[in-house]
């Protein structure tokens, strides 16, 4: 029986590990969108983070430099987006799409010299406690620092938006940039900051993939996770806690369908493969069907350019 309990623990732990990049990127994008900016460049920023982290790790040998370098790379590439959309007032959707295409292309170019190099082992915390508590041990212990950060992030984000003054300013800018501006808030500055923060989180999400989850560099290795992260933000109705739930369901079904296959459950595999997408959307739509709350949490000026010169 103990074996079964640990087996469940192992499955939950792998589900959580697969949810990490989605949570990081979604929570970053959530802040960007809450300030009224729609950045469709999540996939591009993630892949830039992935190659930057891996390249820096290979070149400098320092994991700390690599992790922060990946976040900085995310910041740098999102600066391009911020400059275009906030200073030159370009269209958010078109600029974001361009950012993704640019990111995929340039990461492949930088990555040429880093293909086929094995990654380094990333240190895990609390390894010694791994066999202490049945079920909970594999879930709680023996993960990387990024893993723990990712699971704290939705709560930090939620607290930041609801309880802090800066959070209130971000929401105000996203809901009504005109009113915020009249109150003396520098809308452009706030939006810049939120875009760069989103870039940093996407960079970290990418670095998690190339340095911790599957330590190697492969062209296009984010495999569309940026788009899923984007969808999670919308379907969670801009609620960080629901992002956590959505990411766990998505990661969970991806992994459980592999288990069902291995056990030999006789359900068409194509259906199992599609399951994560379908169920995640259904669940998030159901848990966020209160239209009043949706209106409250949707940034009203999302994707709209703000013209006033500050």
């Amino acid at each position: 029986m103990i074996v079964d309990v640990n087996f469940v623990g192992l499955i939950i732990a792998s589900i959580m590990a697969s949810a990490v990049p989605l949570i990081l990127a979604s929570c970053g994008e959530l802040i960007t969108e809450r300030s009224g900016v729609l950045n469709l460049g999540v996939e591009g920023m993630m892949i830039i983070g992935a190659i930057s982290g891996f390249a820096l790790m290979t070149v400098t040998g320092s994991l700390i430099i690599a992790v922060f370098g990946a976040m900085l790379a995310g910041v740098l590439i999102s600066t391009i987006f911020a400059f275009l959309t906030q200073t030159l007032i370009t269209n958010h959707v078109a600029t974001g799409l361009a950012l993704t295409i640019f990111g995929i292309g340039i990461s492949a170019m930088i990555g040429k010299n880093f293909v086929g190099i094995p990654g380094k082992e990333f240190p895990v915390l609390f390894e010694g406690l791994k066999d202490t508590i049945p079920l909970l041990s594999p879930i709680l212990f023996g993960h990387s620092i990024v893993f723990y950060f990712a699971f704290a992030l939705p709560f930090i984000t939620s607290y930041f938006l609801k309880k802090t003054k800066i959070g209130l300013i971000v929401r105000a800018v996203g809901d009504s940039p005109e009113s915020a501006s009249n109150q003396g808030i520098n809308v452009r500055f706030v939006r810049y900051a939120c875009i760069l923060y989103g870039g940093a989180m996407c960079g970290l999400a990418g670095a998690y993939l190339s340095m911790i989850y599957t330590p190697q560099w492969i062209e296009n290795m984010t495999g569309g996770r940026g788009w899923i992260a984007l969808a999670l933000v919308v379907f969670s109705t801009w609620n960080p806690i629901k992002i956590l739930i959505g990411a766990m369901i998505f990661g969970g079904l991806t992994i459980i369908q592999f288990h069902m296959q291995a056990i030999g459950v006789r359900i068409p595999v194509q259906f199992l493969t599609a399951l994560p997408y379908i169920v995640t959307i259904i669940v998030l739509v159901v848990i966020s069907r209160d239209s009043r709350k949706i209106r409250l949490s949707t940034p009203s000026s999302l994707g709209k350019s703000f013209h006033k010169d500050n």
Binding site: L209, F258, I263, V269, Q270
Partner: peptide, 25 residues
């Protein structure tokens, strides 16, 4: 022999998850 279909030739994340499921079993 337990088979898991990943429905991809090249997606490190998915391949790792498939392998992990098999190892856990």
């Amino acid at each position: 022999t337990k088979i898991v279909w990943a429905f991809t030739w090249y997606d490190p994340g998915k391949e790792a998850e498939a392998a992990k499921a098999l190892i856990d079993q």
